[in-house]
């Protein structure tokens, strides 16, 4: 149950933040709704990436390169 919650939370949070940023940019640049759609997709990607990191046990490490390096180090140890 805990893991499911975490994955759900990561996905929801990613999409939420994406849509939020898109909406703010849209109202600012008056490009509604295009940036919101774009950032919805990016937010989904970020959510999926966060889930991937969670699954690999690299919680919330920002930066994919750093995350994979850290995983390599963990493997070496």
């Amino acid at each position: 149950m805990g893991l499911g919650f975490r994955i759900g939370a990561e996905l929801v949070a990613g999409v939420l933040v994406g849509v939020g940023i898109g909406w703010v940019l849209d109202t600012w640049l008056k490009t509604s709704p295009w940036l919101m759609v774009l950032f919805l997709l990016l937010g989904g990607a970020a959510g999926v990436m966060n889930v991937y990191r969670t699954m690999r046990g690299m919680d919330a490490t920002v930066g994919l390169g750093q995350a994979s390096r850290r995983a390599e180090q963990a493997k070496d140890l």
């Binding site: 949070a13 939420l16 933040v17 994406g18 940023i21 937010g43 920002v62």
Partner: peptide, 11 residues
């Protein structure tokens, strides 16, 4: 990465 970073408090 930015969205991922800003999604931290939400998650």
């Amino acid at each position: 990465e930015l969205i991922s970073y800003f999604s931290r408090p939400f998650s």
